[in-house]
Simulated assay, not measured.
Amino acid sequence: MSLTVVFEHAGGGEPIEYLPGQFLTLWIPGKAGLVPRNYSLSSSPHIDDDLHVTVQRVLGGRASTWIHDELSPGMYIDADGPTGVFTPGDLTLDLTLVASGSGIGPIVSILKSALAAGTGKVNLLYLSRMDDAPFAEDIEALALEYEHRLTSTVWNSHRRGRIPVEQLRAFLVGGAGRELYLCGSTSLMNACAELAVDSGYEQHQIHREDFLSGTDPISDSLPRVVKAKVQLFGETHTWAWNNEAVLLESMLEQGIAAPFSCRSGICSACQCRVVAGDVVMNRADGLDPEQIEQNIVLACQSHAMSEGVELDFDI
């Protein structure tokens, strides 16, 4: 189940400026106070007057549950941003867009913007397990309005099963020269990126937005408490990491003076290397592919995926 929340600027005045595909950092009430959670904007700065985020309810997800059950019209909520680099540099170019699940949020923001403010053609592939997939009706309406510029496929994986690799390949073939934007499951993005290179895309044409499914980092797939060991400024710190908090939050709660600045995954001031164990990031905008290959993560975006996690800030 998904819910679209519309935000008005509490201070009034000029509309908040942002780029299609960017995200907001919402400060969600929690047991230990306000905690930051990143949600992609599903609105378009070229069409919509206000900011929209579309939140899928995640089983066991504290943030998404609070938004679905507690957030109501008229309430105020603190937010940082908008920010993020998953955004087209030129809306006049031809685009290929691939989304699955809640990854449709930033993709539909880019889609609406490219059609409203651009001149290029857009190919869209959207995979969803839901019969009433979010934005499916909007996409159908856009396909009629921009019939000569938009080609769209909404694939119901609940009814039709996993999309065949050959069908993915056929969707990407002929896209050389286009910019490719991927947002969804890691397996889908990896498969599309590999097929895209085989189909003639250059690496610099492939853009992906990496974040945990549902854009809500607290789910039953993550261990609740893990033993964490961190090397920072030549000192070793060990504690029980409550995995409901990202690494940076947990370190600050322990009185560990971790380096940070934006807390939104952009500035990379809190980067560290995973020495042992497995870590997943909500977003990785502040890192390049080479850093990710070297097991560099951002503390403000990281949750443990295994027991016995060790990290080194002295890199």
Rank of each mutant, 00 (worst) to 15 (best):
L172Q: 07
G174F: 09
G175C: 05
R178N: 04
L182Q: 04
C183F: 01
G184Y: 02
S185P: 11
S185C: 07
S187G: 13
L188F: 05
M189Q: 05
A191D: 14
C192F: 03
C192T: 02
E194L: 06
L195S: 07
V197A: 13
S199Q: 11
Q205Y: 09
H207P: 05
H207A: 11
R208A: 13
R208W: 10
E209R: 15
E209F: 11
D210Q: 14
G214R: 05
T215D: 15
D216F: 10
D216W: 10
D216K: 13
S219Q: 01
P223S: 05
P223Q: 03
R224E: 10
K229R: 15
Q231S: 15
L232M: 07
G234C: 06
G234F: 03
H237W: 09
T238K: 12
T238S: 14
T238R: 14
N243W: 02
N243F: 03
N243T: 00
V246H: 15
L248P: 06
E249D: 11
L252W: 04
Q254C: 09
I256D: 05
A257E: 15
A258G: 09
F260R: 02
R263L: 00
R263I: 01
C267K: 07
S268I: 00
C270D: 00
Q271H: 13
Q271V: 08
C272M: 07
R273S: 05
R273C: 03
V274G: 04
V275R: 15
V275Y: 11
G277V: 02
D278V: 11
D278P: 09
V279K: 00
N282G: 14
